[in-house]
Structure formats: C-alpha cells, structure tokens
Design a protein around this nucleic acid. Structure first.
Lengths: 278, 278
DNA sequence: GTGTATTAGTGTATGGTGTACACAGTGCTT
DNA sequence: AAGCACTGTGTACACCATACACTAATACAC
C-alpha cells in the first residue's frame, strides 16, 4: 500500500525496463531475485513462526485467528470481519489479534489464502488434458462461489499465497501435457483462469446474495431491475432484444452457461494446440 | 445490502423458481416486471431529478459530486473517496453531499457508472463481427486500466447503470451480426466479457500500482516475490518450470498476452458459429 | 405584501473502525 | 534470584459514515 523504498534495485538490465512495455518476462525475472523488503508482506503466509520459548504461551495460533475471521466472513460477509469481531469470537480483546498479525491487511491476506483452499487432487488414470482443465475451471468456480467474499478483494490488495499457487500448479501440470512451450502454457493458463474468474462473477454475486439470506428470485429481481431498464429504451435495442427474445424451451442455468462458454474457450485452445503440433 | 421486504412478489409462476436452479431466463423474466421497491437503489442513475421549485437553489448537481469523487479516485484510489474528501474538494461540508446522494453506497454506484464511460462508437463501414468484438474487448480492457479503481467494487455492491448497459449494447450489436440465436448471443457475450474482465486483472493491478506512483519494475518485483516462492519448492514443480523456462527471445507484453488469449477465445466462438450455420 | 411550506447547507453528536502506546503479568534463561 | 522476551489488556486517538436539529433561502398561496 505505502510507497516502496528502494527504487533502483533492478538496474543493470539490458534495456531500461522503465521505458519498454512490461512483459511477463519482467515479472518472471523479478521472481528470481527479489528485494527482501518486498517479501515482508506475504511472509506470514509462508513462514513457520519461530516461537521463541520465552514468555507466556500464546493462547492462540495465527491459524485460529484466520479460522475465526473466515467463519465471520462466511456468515456475514467480508465487511463483518472487523478486528473486534474476530477477537470477540475467540474470547479476546481487539488488540490481542495484533500479536498474531501486524495489521488487518495482513490478516486478510491470510484469510484469502486460507479461503482459496486447494484444487481437487489429480485422479489416476489421468484423463486427457482437456477434461482435467475443464474440471479445474469448474472446481475453481465452485470454490469462488462457496466463499463469495474471496472475490471482494482485488488483486493488489491480496498477495498470492501458497494455496493460490497450488491452483496454478494444478493447471500448469494439466497444460504441460499438451506439449506446448512454456510460454504458450502460460498463455493458456491465463486464458482459462481469466475466463473462469470473469465468467463466474454473476454466480458469485448470486452466492453472495444467498449467503445474506436473499432468495434466488429476489436476487434475480434485483439484477433484472437493472437489466430491464434497457427494455423499451431506444438506446439499447440490441440488448433489449436479447432480454425479450422468447425462450427456446430449454434455458441454461448459470452453471450450464459457464460450462458452455468454457467449451468454446477450450475449443479455441485446442485449435491452437493442433496448429502448433503440425 | 439490507434485507428486501417483499418476499413473495414473484409467485404465480409455472414452476416454483425457488426449487430449481436459477436460469438466465429467470433473470430476464424478472427484468420485465419488477418490484418497484427494488428499483429504488439504481434510480438515481436514471432519473432526471424533478427539482421542485421551492427552497434555495442547490449549489451543486449530482454530477458535480460524482466528478469530484472520480477525480479523487483517479488521484488517490477508491479508498481516498470519503464523504468528507468529496465535500471538501467542492468547498462544502460533509453533510452537504447527503442532499444529493442518500448515502455513500449510492454515490459510489454513480461514480462507478460514470467511470465506466462509453464504448468506442461504431465505425462505418463496419468490419466483420470478429474485428468489432476484438476492438470492444480491447477498449473495455483499456477502460478498466484507465480507471483501475473500477474493478475494486464487486458486482453486488455496484448495480448496473446506463453506461454499463451501453457497453453491453455495443457488443450485443456486434454479435447480432453473427446470425446466432438470442440465447447463443447471450452466451458469447458472457464469454467475451468474462474473459476480458478476468484476463485484465494483472494489467489492472499494474495500472493501480502505477497510479499510486509505483514503477513497473517495482510492481513486477512485488508480484514476482509471490510467484517466486514456487521456485525451488517441491510443491510447485510445474509452475516453477514455467517461471524459470528460458525466454524464447520475444516475450509477450501484458497487452500482447491478452490479445493472444482473445484470439483463442474468438477462435472458439467462430468455430461454434460455423458449426451452427451448417 | 405577508405568511408558510419546502429545500440547501451547517454544526454537532454518535457509534464504529483500525491501531499506537503504555502497562501488567508470565515463564524461560542465566 | 534477576532479567528478559513475550502475551494480553486498557486507554486513547484519528477517522469514518451518518442521524438530527438548526438556520437561511426561496417560491407559492393568500
């Protein structure tokens, strides 16, 4: 959040990276040697706390705190996660939490990573890559819907922890079996991950509404109220036509719609793989 | 946010929608006839305020307030947008803002819609649908990167206003030229929109960092710090391999990577169109 | 004109938030 | 026994959204 301190730690490059457009390579090169100060923030997600033996024994573990915060988020949404609420749920005072996390931001980092969980394990015998990737995307979507508050913290705010990496590892593993180059695998990974997150927004919104006690019909009415403004408005004829088109008898559920789109995306990827192989 | 009041306003349906999985049709049917109370929240985005003639003349317009809030968000991020900051920038006291917006949430709704802006106008003669959709996705991505705080408010929080609809109208118009059914056009729209939003996350994160004065290299170092944890860690061999693979000489920029993925997605859509046409 | 209803903006107050800081107690280490 | 590092608490502060009561301005009814 605050300004970083060491501006010229990445000098002595071939070209001055400040003038070019940023490439994935820059990120990846940066991942090899990193200013130690930048590691600080996500450190708590990785380190075993060294627990010096002196002093009174802590009544909590960082994990206790994270679990309590997650329960609150599950029950009442991310905005209900206050330092006081977390502490109260554990029977401590607000400030006790600060013995385990230096500030709320760091705690939320850990909460997000914990909520991210793990991808489903690989099954043997392994099916073709496409089936695996399909299952991965579905699982990721399901995971987001199960904890809809996960999507409430954008990228910058939440650094990426071990669980997040485990999802990337899983899909990287599946995609590695396509025979594509590392760069192309990275590209395909971005496609599937991007589609999955972006196209799950609606379902996440519904899940969030449900978690707050709203029924599906109520949520639909709310979203429909916004969409319906298009109907009869001359500014939005094409979109209104989509809304008012007669249903062809077998309307898609949100999940079916996601699956349908995913198949199109995978079609596109498959096409590329075949073209690359020749 | 608060619980809705009229629970059984959508009875007398064919099947009780509460038990089935929710379909797109439910949303769209809901958009035709809507509980008037639900219209309230997004009303300010649509109504011309009727301006009864009595009383002192207002010193501001809702638009003034929105503009001020947007300038603050552009300069210092969404978290800097406080009622006090907005009022101060306009030379008023905090509470004056409440004469124009009933609460901060509603103001932010308007700010988000204003920040969303309009899609680029159609050019004549119109190119094939694919080129138009491609341009649309790029424009949407550019729009998100230009105002990276837009992505900081998730779906539920921000209802959809007229500008948001104008983007949907634009792509619906382009996709209408494919000859697909309304349902399929809706599906394709979700795919492109989903991919565009999801796959722009990284670029949005970078844009946000830049808006806060961070250099590209600094941002890359931060993200790289998280990614780099995979390197050498036996839990993430495949992903680490992607990171450490030797660059093949022409690394993709973030934008090129997005375009590349978009082509794959459009390939998949095109394949479907061709299959449908036969 | 003279009231009177209606609205714009202000000042003040309240409850909630993250967190700095000083302190008291605890239990190993020397 | 003394020291020390650590845990949890109490207090305090700055900031935030916002309810409420008030003043001042304006236009309409008479």
């Amino acid at each position: 959040m605050a300004g970083r301190k060491t501006p010229n730690s990445t000098s002595r490059k071939k070209r001055p990276a400040s003038k070019r457009a940023l490439t994935h390579d820059d990120m990846m090169q940066a991942s090899v040697r990193v200013d130690p100060e930048l590691r600080r923030r996500s450190e708590l997600l990785w380190e075993d706390r060294s627990r010096s033996t002196r002093g009174p024994k802590p009544g909590l573990t960082p994990n206790d705190v994270v679990q309590a915060a997650m329960e609150i988020a599950d029950a009442d949404g991310l905005s209900a996660v206050t330092m006081h609420a977390v502490a109260a749920r554990l029977g401590f005072t607000t400030m006790a939490i600060y013995r385990y996390f230096p500030n709320k931001e760091t705690l939320l980092d850990a909460v997000v990573d914990a909520g991210t969980g793990f991808p489903p394990p690989v099954t043997e015998p392994r099916p073709e890559w496409r089936k695996e990737v399909f299952a991965w995307a579905r699982a990721k979507r399901a995971s987001l819907c199960a904890r809809p508050w996960l999507a409430e913290l954008p990228f910058v705010v939440a650094p990426h922890g071990p669980n997040w990496l485990s999802w990337l590892e899983a899909i990287a593993d599946s995609l590695s079996r396509t025979g594509l180059s590392a760069a192309d695998i990275g590209g395909m990974l971005s496609i599937v991950d991007g589609y999955t997150r972006g196209a799950s927004d609606t379902a996440i919104s519904l899940a969030r509404a449900r978690a707050r006690g709203m029924s599906g019909a109520e949520w639909a009415a709310g979203v429909g109220a916004d969409l319906g403004r298009a109907i009869g408005n001359p500014r939005f004829p094409r979109f209104a036509a989509l809304l008012t088109a007669p249903s062809d008898g077998h309307p898609r559920t949100l999940d079916e719609s996601f699956d349908f789109g995913l198949e199109r995306v995978l079609d596109g990827i498959e096409l590329y793989i075949k073209a690359s192989a020749s």
